[in-house]
Design a protein around this nucleic acid. Structure first.
Length: 588
RNA sequence: GCGCCCGUAGCUCAGUCGGAUAGAGCACCAGAUUCCUAAUCUGGGGGUCGUGGGUUCAAAUCCCGCCGGGCGCACCA
């Protein structure tokens, strides 16, 4: 349960009731009324901005509205059990101070629900398609792909937790010239494998050594049978073979990160099924396809520019900057044409929210795809494109050299092998997706506060250690397998303890906010803050013995505090679950 | 030239649908360990939120101009 929405709902109802009683004007718009956690601890637990928002509409000073509202709220029976006191502050905020018993109830809820705490229904089972990675099947994934992979996967988990019906999808670009080049590259390696010396590598051949194993496997399977054939004869078959081999490679790279997909969608299948013609036919009927000649971009004339009539989509009618070509000069479809069909297919499969996760170099492509969706689907579906910015790989602050000949980038596999799945996943979410990310291989292994992976894991491990210690050193307490429903939570009275529960109780709101904004990085920052609260409280037991979790002379107090610690572990685990990171119970 | 993203403490970055005295880590300074993991914690200094306007009761947040950085710009994917 999201406590902020709960209170907000109650208060909105009461405002409406005041309107009915004519204590406030009728017909007030409450859309901007909000219940938020105040930054300042002295401002209570929940701040309501209603008085300021309504002042203008009601033609009354905010203070006066606040007076009316607080006077009324104090008499509402539903709130009497929850609110210790309320005050009017600043320009007209109503600050609510909640009773300890309310927070105890929140903790009890956490313990009952376990890592399912924070699950929400705001998504309302809306069907969402998240397409991510979608790297060309021409080689292994690099670190940049890894960021998109982790981002997409965590976003899916987040959306599911918030109650959306989500599907993970990978679009395979298996139809263009790049996969022909891949097939030629494989053939080159195949000739080598057959004992030929093909000589210097021609231009347009992928130089990576990752094609050696598939070439050898091809030779082992088929012998020399392809050598005597012409390119037209071997290319289609070897293309299929090479794409499958590369997809195996990619799937293996993703599996190392614990990432799988509900569907791999082939671009070639769109061509084969006539989906492109169908989608463009529809655009044609809508009158947004025409033949015309584009102006060259001002300020940067391409060398080989020549004015040429093309088949164009009138993207400018839907917010794009220029109209976009659908056919290449050789008559085949452009990538954009098949992408139109692909997104139309997603809409036709019933998805109402489409999310595409792309690299930073594709930012210029967003408007045209949005334009196409608008033209084909109107308001039936919306597209949100999440751009994942570049990743710089460092080691001890020094940029890692781009790897030898195998490609231009550090491979994802190398990085996962070096620091582990959990560290990669966590670090990838410690920046907003649209900000550049420095990934320092040595820092993510460091055991210090500087390293958020460690800091959060350590908090979880510490929480687990309290349970261990109680079990081992205080068997008389009988808390080896506690029944949380009997925990005497009323014994949690210290402000620092309540403060931690307050943080834990933000978790459902964090989930909903992050899910709506499509921003999984918020989870990482929340967990870091929570870990900080917990470490601080843990340490205060050093200065003040009475604050330690385990009180040898007081079994019930120890039980209550164990419950608090368990709540911390639970929420951390719940957050890590969304991030796809395994919580550790010990770090020795 | 045009489009998109970014500009917050010395450095790296958070900042919720616009909300109260703009936060955290690092670095710097001063402290805490007979004690559940000091792998941690406490306190301190440090800001024209790039800049100039505008909207608003209220702007780091929304709108416009400018400056600085990144990405992209027909027939690649």
């Amino acid at each position: 349960m999201n406590i902020f929405n709960l209170l907000l709902h109650i208060i909105k109802v009461e405002i409406e009731s005041l309107s009915m009683q004519s204590a406030l004007p009728a017909g007030l718009a409450l859309d901007n009324v909000a219940a938020t956690p105040p930054r300042e601890a002295g401002h209570g637990d929940i701040a309501i901005n209603a008085a300021m928002v309504l002042a203008k509409q009601a033609k009354m000073p905010p203070r006066q509205i606040a007076e009316i509202l607080t006077g009324h709220l104090e008499s509402v029976s539903k709130l009497k059990d929850i609110i210790a006191r309320l005050e009017i502050a600043g320009p007209g905020f109503i600050n609510l101070f909640l009773k300890d018993t309310f927070w105890h109830a929140q903790l009890a809820d956490i313990l009952t629900r376990g890592t399912r705490y924070g699950d929400s229904t705001v998504g309302n089972d809306e069907r969402v398609n998240v397409e991510f990675v979608s790297a060309n099947p021409t080689g292994p994934l690099h670190v940049g792909h890894g960021r998109g992979a982790v981002f997409g996967d965590a976003l899916v988990a987040l959306l599911k937790k918030a109650g959306y019906a989500v599907s993970r999808e990978y679009y395979i670009n298996d139809a263009g010239g790049q996969v022909d080049a891949l097939a030629r590259s494989l053939y080159f390696r195949y000739r080598e494998a057959c004992g030929e010396t093909p000589g210097a590598m021609p231009h347009g051949i992928y130089p990576g050594e990752y094609l050696l194993p598939p070439a050898a496997a091809l030779r082992a399977r088929d012998g020399d049978k392809w050598l005597a054939l012409s390119e037209a004869e071997w290319l289609p078959a070897l293309r299929v073979y090479a794409i499958e081999a590369m997809l195996d490679l990619i799937r293996a790279d993703l599996a190392r990160l614990g990432i799988g997909f509900d569907r791999f969608f082939s671009e070639r299948s769109l061509h084969a099924a006539g989906s492109i013609e169908a989608a463009l036919q529809r655009l044609n009927e809508a009158g947004v396809i025409y033949t015309g000649t584009l102006e060259p971009p001002k300020g940067m004339l391409p060398d080989d520019w020549e004015p040429r009539p093309q088949t164009l989509f009138r993207a400018t009618a839907f917010g794009d900057d220029v109209d976009r070509p659908l056919k290449k000069s050789d008559g085949s479809w452009t990538y954009f044409a098949s992408d139109i069909a692909y997104h139309f297919d997603k809409v036709n499969r019933g998805f109402t929210t489409l999310i595409d996760v792309w690299g930073a170099d594709h930012g210029g492509y967003i408007k045209r795809v949005k334009a196409a969706i608008k033209a084909l689907a109107g308001d039936r579906a919306t597209l949100d494109v999440k751009i994942c910015n570049m990743v710089r790989v460092l080691d001890g602050g020094v940029p890692v050299k781009m790897s030898k000949r195998s490609g231009d980038f550090v491979t994802l596999k190398d990085v996962v092998d070096a620091v582990g799945k959990d560290a990669v996943r966590f670090i990838m979410l410690t920046r907003r997706n649209d900000a550049m990310l420095d990934f320092d291989l040595s820092k993510v292994l460091e055991q210090s506060r500087e390293n958020p992976v460690f800091y959060v894991q350590y908090a979880h491990a510490r929480a687990c250690s309290v349970a261990r210690r109680l079990k081992l050193d205080y068997p008389a307490f009988g808390l080896a397998t506690p029944d949380w429903s009997t925990a005497p939570l009323a014994r949690l009275t210290h402000p620092a303890e309540i403060a931690i529960i307050r943080r834990l109780a933000q978790w459902p709101d964090i989930v909903e906010g992050a899910a709506k904004a499509h921003e999984p990085h918020r989870i990482a920052f929340f967990l870091y803050d929570l870990a900080g609260d917990f470490h601080a409280h843990w340490n205060s037991g050093n200065d003040e013995e009475a604050l330690r979790f385990i009180v040898p002379t007081d079994r019930d107090l120890s039980f209550a505090r164990l419950a608090l610690v368990q709540g911390v572990a639970t929420v951390i685990a719940s957050g890590l679950e969304v991030m796809g990171v395994t919580p550790v119970e010990e770090m020795r």
